[in-house]
């Protein structure tokens, strides 16, 4: 049998330029987006676009110049954020957004470093990095998009999948307990812990903007619909149905004890700003306890 190969079509640079010129700049937020990258790859009804949109609005609100802000993502659908923002962004290997961002934040304390990644990336493969960066109080702004599954690889179970929820790898329902992310972040030492859903877009903009001015490790969990990996197998429905579920089942409770904010399958979702405290940062302590001693001996 003769194999017929597909002819190699050269990249149509002219076509791409035409598309870019026609499409880019139609929306006021396009100045924050890489030319030619929109439409993004996310599914219709996916919540990730909302989170990206709110992040851009938080930047606009605080007026932080884009050459002073950096976004670091891991791998996953959420990790794609790094490819869409028109600023210094880094798409790192799976689970390693926090170690990369730690280095960046310590060597360039003048930059505002945001880690934007999924629940699987930050809490499965990257779980250890998360707890230690929080313990050390590295100056990082972490935004974790929790869609209760591994969206990118086909909807597998994640450490955040609620008990009894169906995913492609738990066809009879999940039998494992799930992480309560705000509790984990708070217990590990995060100085700011909040949770919102994509339905609470306005509150999310304010929360992200608020964290920009906090020195230390901040954590915002954003509950977002993944109609493909989570909504459909669990009969929640489309992205819009999941947003309506958030609207009807969210309880705003600022200052709630993070121990009590577990999310059950189709259960109530407690949202709000759970905690904020002040604690010396990693860089501050290192300067104070180590570097100072050497400076004294030098002079």
């Amino acid at each position: 049998m003769k194999i017929r190969y597909q002819p190699i079509v050269p990249f149509d640079q002219e076509g791409f330029n035409r598309l870019k010129d026609e499409q880019h700049g139609l929306h006021p937020d396009d100045q924050y987006l890489k030319p030619g990258r929109i439409p993004h790859i996310w599914c219709p009804g996916c919540g990730l676009g909302v989170v990206l949109n709110t992040y851009i609005n938080a930047l606009k609100m605080t007026g932080i110049p884009i050459d002073r802000s950096v976004v670091v993502s891991g791998i996953g659908c959420t990790g794609r954020v790094a490819g869409y923002l028109n600023m210094d962004t880094y798409h790192t290997t799976h689970g390693r957004a926090i170690p990369f961002a730690t280095g960046l934040s310590l060597t360039r304390p003048d930059l505002s470093v945001t880690v934007f990644s999924g629940d699987g990336d930050l809490f499965a493969i990257g779980g250890n990095h998360f707890i230690h960066a929080a313990r050390r109080n590295v100056n990082l702004k972490v935004i974790c998009v929790n869609n209760f599954n591994y969206g990118m690889t086909g909807g597998q179970v994640a450490p955040t999948t609620p008990v009894s929820a169906r995913t492609t790898t738990t066809p009879y329902g999940n039998s494992e307990a799930s992480f309560n992310l705000p509790y984990l972040a708070h217990a590990s030492g995060a100085v700011y812990v909040a949770r919102w859903t994509t339905f609470h877009a306005r509150q999310l903009v304010n929360a992200i903007a608020e964290t920009f001015s906090i020195d230390g490790f901040t954590f915002i969990e954003v509950i977002a619909p993944c109609p493909v990996g989570y909504g459909r197998p669990n009969k929640i429905g489309s992205g819009l149905d999941e947003m309506i579920y958030y609207k009807e089942n969210s309880i705003v409770q600022n200052g709630a004890d993070p121990r009590n904010v577990d999310i059950a399958l189709k259960g109530k979702i407690v949202v709000g700003k759970f905690s904020e405290e002040k604690r010396p940062t990693f860089l501050g302590e290192y300067e104070e306890k180590i570097l100072k001693k050497f400076r004294r001996t030098e002079t």
């Binding site: 006021p28 929109i38 993004h40 676009g49 949109n53 709110t54 609005n57």
Partner: peptide, 13 residues
């Protein structure tokens, strides 16, 4: 501006 900040596609403002 709610529609603007809730649109995942940057399609409305």
């Amino acid at each position: 501006n709610l529609c603007e900040i809730i649109c995942p596609e940057f399609a409305i403002y």
